[in-house]
Structures are given as structure tokens and as C-alpha cells.
Amino acid sequence: MRIVIDPEAAERGIRRIAGAIVERARGAGDVCLVGIRRGGEPIARRLALAIEQLEGQKVPLGLLDIALYRDDAATALPAPRLGRSEIPFAVEGRRVVLVDDVLFTGRTVRAAVDALLDYGRPRTIELAVLVDRGGRELPIQADYAVRAVEVGVGERVDVAETEAGLHAVVLAQGEPTS
């Protein structure tokens, strides 16, 4: 097991991303965050808090479940975990930042973009992740990443939330989740 992000690095990285998001539009303005369930949820919550601390203004936070939009939905039915999406604001015309824990093949993000468009037509959609581990199968990239890591064939990246904060580790093939 190789630790790639510890709680302190996660906090620092998320603060940095919050700054970059605000910087891009010169203020938090009409930005809203949408976490991809379930991995993106704790990261989106922390990012919302970091932007609020920076700008003194609350950022709308939604959660998106993409099980119904997977490109293997019809052959891998039913999805093992079907959760509810909660988007308590109109995305129409807004600047949306999608948030996930690990960016790998890009298929989850593709599904999330499709799902989001069924809620309305945002002005822009950006992507923020905790770990970019490479290995893309679709032409998708992150606008903001706390850390990019090299991951070998067969290895996987696990993100966990404990009381201390967020941890990201690289596990060898077959190594149990810590």
C-alpha cells in the first residue's frame, strides 16, 4: 500500500482547488458544485466549505447518482447501488463543477455529464477530482486535480474518509481495502 494523499495534503489541495475555481471566474459568482455519488460526495462537501471560507458566500451543492446512465447499464442490470440524485437548484445557465474522487477511464464522468444535462443546460461544466490516475478510455480530462499519480497495471486507487479527513492510497492487485 502506497499513501498518495493524507488528510493534511487533501485539505491543502482542496483549498488550492477552491482558489482556482474562484480565480477562473474572478469570484464564486453563479458557481455550483455537483458531487458524483458516492465517492465524490465527501470531496464536494469539503470543496463547498473551502469556497465558502474563501468568498464568504454559500455555494449550492448537489449530488448525482449515475447508475442509470452507465454505458453498460443495459448489460450490467440492475446496478448494484442505485441511489437518489439530489440537485436542489436549477442548473440552467449556471457554472457547474462536477466533483469526483478518482478520475480513471472517464466513463463515469461521461455518464455524469449526460445525467446533468437531463436536469437542464448549464452554461459550463468543469471537473474537479482528488486523484487523477490516468488510463483514460474517453477524451475527458480534469480541470482541477489535487494530485496526479502514476498507477501500474492491476493496481487500484482507494479513497477513504475517516475522522482525520480524506486518505488516498494505491493498492496492489488483490490487496484488501485498508
Binding site: A74, L117, Y119
Partner: peptide, 23 residues
Amino acid sequence: DTAEVFFDVSRRPVRKVPTLRGK
């Protein structure tokens, strides 16, 4: 429990998901 998810879908502007495409 599964129906709760679809109840939400039916109240969205786009009341359709691509899940059973080809069925």
C-alpha cells in the same frame, strides 16, 4: 426503494433515463 429514484426522475424537466435502451 428503487421506485423512489424513478419517482424523482418523473419530476425532472427531462423525464427519461437511457437505462433500458435496446430492451
